[in-house]
Structure formats: structure tokens, C-alpha cells
Design a protein around this nucleic acid. Structure first.
Lengths: 130, 130
DNA sequence: TTGCATTTACGAAACTTTTCGTATATCATT
DNA sequence: AATGATATACGAAAAGTTTCGTAAATGCAA
């Protein structure tokens, strides 16, 4: 049983920040801003990142510890739940709700390693056994 | 070998229009607008749909036959190519590029029928042989 | 042919998301 | 205490997307 907090869905820019927080754990604005600028060619200003993270905190996507001068931010949105919600929206919008079409497309396009295929096959078996 | 036309990616509202055109084939603004309003609770004005389709035509996502007074619009963006491009962007943004994670999530959440599972298994076998 | 309904054209308003300028506070160093 | 570097707060500009009001053109019916 997972509690459903029903957070708003993150925008694209917000999602990039969440990805970093999910991977790195609690972080400062400076750290996130540097990570973002490693990933992209276009330089993002520090205050831009700050503002986004403040907005995300208002939306409860993040929380922060303000004890020290340098605030430390924490992802409140759970990765799996967020992905699930985004995926549903995406399947509806781009594949008219057919998750299978999406899976076929995803498997077809990418080259997938044998290990990954095995993972997927295992999951399918598990589903078949019910 | 498929020609790459490299069209801009459609916005959400544009994608809804494309979905209808992909399914129904060449259509008028009135028809699209009615379909949209069947699908949604919120009423969308006729000129709103018209404007969007005009913009999409400028972007080459659509083309139109203007011979008769009532223009007939045609999807230029190919469904499979568009889905592929959108999927790549989505996998990167939400699953950090891991198509396998996305597939696992998609299979895990939705209940998938035995037929669909069989389809997927067949595709996996094909990939493994290929 | 006059008038009504329907269509397209055009521009701009309304919203949403992203970006940043500027002000102010805090900390460390001298 | 003064200086410089770094932090947060706030508001608003900039950019992107969606919506629609209004005007002008076209076709149809009386």
C-alpha cells in the first residue's frame, strides 16, 4: 500500500532537476545547477535553477532544509510514482492508450541487450503466472 | 530506408489533432473540432482548432487541399516516425534514456492481455534471433 | 439578389513555463 | 568593521502554447 500524495506533474525543466535529485540524493542549488550545465550545452543561470527549485518546493515536489544558510533540497516526488503518472499521460497522448504499442515501439527501435531482454521476459512470465 | 523529413515535434494539442487525422484520414476542420469535443469535456472553439491546424500546416505537420471552400487537411507527419521521436524524448526525460526501464514500468502497471504478451514475446524472439 | 450560415484569415489576448535582473542577507577573511 | 564571495527572495521579462474575437469571403436558400 503506497500513500498517494497526488503531486502535480513536473514540467520538463522540473523533471530534469528531479532526475538529478533522485540519483544524487539531497543536494544544494549550486550542485543541481552545475549538473544541469554539465548535461546541456546551453548555460543555465544559477538564479534560474534556484527559482525553479523554489517553485517546486511550493508545489511540494521538493522539500528543503533551511537550517544552514545553504538550503539542502530533497525530492518529495517519488521516482516510480512520477514515472508511472508521466507514462500514463504519454501513452494516452502518443499511443492512444495502448501500452503495448509503446512497448513494441520501444523494443523495436532501441537495441536491447540480452540481459535486458531476459529481464523483460522474466517479467512477462511473472505476469502470465498472474 | 525511410526518408527523414525531420519535422518539428508536435505540442500536446497538435498531437491530439494528428491522432484524429491518423485514424480518420484527411479531414476538415469542422470534423476534427467535433472529434476533439467528443473526447473532452471542455469545449474547444472552432476557430481555435482552425488556428492550430493552420499553424501545423505552416510547420508542415499537415498539408491541405484548398480547392474547395472547405479545406481538407492531411497529416504529413508519419505516425510511426512521430511516435518514435516522441518516445526517444520521453525516455530521455523520464527514464534517463533507459528504454528497458520504461518497458518494465509499462508492462508492470498496465494489465496486459495474453495476446499482447504473445506479440511482445514474438518480437523479443525476433530480436534475439536477429 | 438579399440575407443567413459557414468558412478561412489574422491578430492578439490569456496562460503556462522558463529565465534572469536586482535587492538583500550571510559568512569568511582581512 | 569593511570587503568580497556566495546565498536566498522577489518580481517581472521572455518565450512558448492555446484560445478566441472579429472581419472578410464564399456558398446556399428564400
Amino acid at each position: 500500500m503506497s500513500k498517494k500524495s497526488n503531486l502535480p506533474q513536473p514540467t520538463d525543466a522540473e523533471l530534469e532537476i528531479l532526475q538529478i535529485l533522485w540519483e544524487a540524493g539531497p543536494s544544494t542549488v549550486r550542485f543541481i545547477n552545475e549538473k544541469l550545465n554539465e548535461q546541456q550545452e546551453k548555460e543555465i543561470g544559477y538564479t534560474t535553477t534556484l527559482k525553479l527549485m523554489q517553485i517546486m518546493t511550493e508545489k511540494k515536489l521538493l522539500s528543503r532544509n533551511t537550517e544552514s544558510r545553504t538550503h539542502v533540497y530533497l525530492a518529495e516526488a517519488v521516482q516510480g510514482d512520477t514515472q508511472k503518472a508521466l507514462l500514463k499521460k504519454f501513452v494516452d497522448a502518443a499511443f492512444q492508450g495502448s501500452a503495448t504499442s509503446l512497448v513494441m515501439q520501444a523494443l523495436g527501435n532501441h537495441q536491447t541487450s540480452q540481459e535486458e531482454l531476459d529481464e523483460i521476459k522474466a517479467l512477462i512470465e511473472k505476469i502470465e503466472k498472474g
